[in-house]
Design a protein around this nucleic acid. Structure first.
Lengths: 219, 219
DNA sequence: GATAAAAGATCTACACCGTAGGATAGGCCG
DNA sequence: CGGCCTATCCTACGGTGTAGATCTTTTATC
């Protein structure tokens, strides 16, 4: 069936596999993703993949590694204020998540210890220290920030991926019984653009304010 | 093989299935979970489950619904200050996540619109409004809070579930090169008890401070 | 260049999965 | 009693991840 004979190098490599895998998940989603489908996409026997990646779990690792390095390669140059660094990191991270909404859930389960990720956190904490924030606050900051980012993006991307139809900030408003939940019903009009830019910036401000406000006043 | 004849009611019900499913995921994890294993656990034919639950996706929905209602049934009575409500909610949520660490990832992907969950958020926002917080802050608060909770708990439960060996706040410290990451290395000693109680309370304080500080000073 | 060894691609096969379709039995109402 | 309805089970189909053997090409060694 194949045009190539046996043993003929198909030009496979860990990188090429990872790239194709990311594209496949972007297109068809994680549920249907699998070794065999990926192999079909690459025009290759399923088992050939195992010559470069030891199993499906490692394949998922390779996917998340690929999208993460793609993201962290574009925070440059570094700002001078720690808030700006945090904001730049958050926005870049969000852009990556928006580009690959169906890959993103993978990232939230895997601990990220790549060199680029560590360097980003290093930059942030270094600036925080220089700004005389308490060390405990500085040490906690990355966990607060990325904890929030993972949870919030998971929520917004999960729903907006299903109904990305109306462009005008539609996103089906949940119908609430005003008798049972008067406050939520009253607040409803304020939830414009679930997962939108302005909402994200407000949330981010809230987080950064929280981090900054745990510090004593700078003289 | 089965002791029962055909058609004999096995006492199956949506609730009994959900309970057994939660127990099974708690014990063996999500990866190996499936209809057939659950049926075996219940001493029942796999297809019998389909008489009560329409498919595997619905089965996962039932699981997350079960653990969530288990959690939200224990916030009572409600405190008077919105911070106390938020803290109570967060702690209860975390306890649920700790009880079912391998189920928890399911919750972070599914939008929660159960009555008990909505009521909890209603209570929180009602108190915030009465405390004269700006409506926009109040409307954003649940998303910030639960966004953070989902992300943070996902991170801590994911790793602590693997090495829950040493009881004394061990949790394998990541070895960092002090030359490449001087700040992170210096901050290392402050990261005591990853996922521990004190850490969680600090993070929670940070979030609540952020929310509160976006409000104008109360007179 | 000849030859051996290593590496990569493929084929086959196995155990497992979710579930559609049908056969069978018990409970319930006439 | 007869007929329906529902819950259980059985069988079967197409899909999955991957272990093991086989074949071919590339690379290393003399």
């Amino acid at each position: 069936m194949s045009r190539r004979g046996r043993g003929t190098p198909a030009g496979l490599s860990r990188e090429r596999i990872a790239t194709a895998a990311v594209a496949l998940v972007d297109r068809d989603g994680l549920e249907t993703f699998g070794v065999r489908r990926l192999a079909a996409e690459l025009g290759v026997d399923p088992m050939s993949i195992y010559n470069h990646i030891p199993g499906k779990a490692a394949l998922l690792d390779a996917i998340s590694e690929a999208v993460l390095t793609e993201a962290s390669a574009q925070v440059d140059p570094w700002p001078q204020d720690w808030r700006d660094v945090a904001r730049a990191l958050a926005r870049t991270y969000r852009e990556m998540a928006t580009r690959h909404p169906r890959v993103f859930p993978l990232l939230t389960t895997r601990a990220q210890t790549s060199a680029t990720a560590l360097e980003a956190v290093e930059q942030l904490t270094a600036l925080m220290r220089r700004a005389n924030l308490p060390d405990q606050v500085t040490a906690d900051a990355p966990l607060v920030l990325f904890g929030f980012l993972n949870g919030y993006l998971l929520a917004t991307l999960g729903t907006s991926a299903r109904d990305s139809q109306g462009e005008s900030a539609g996103s089906t408003q949940l119908e609430l019984d005003p008798l049972a939940y008067p406050t939520l019903a009253a607040l409803g009009p304020l939830q414009t653009g679930f997962g939108g830019d302005e909402e994200f910036e407000r949330m981010l401000d809230t987080i950064l304010t929280g981090i900054a406000s745990r510090a004593p006043r700078p003289s």
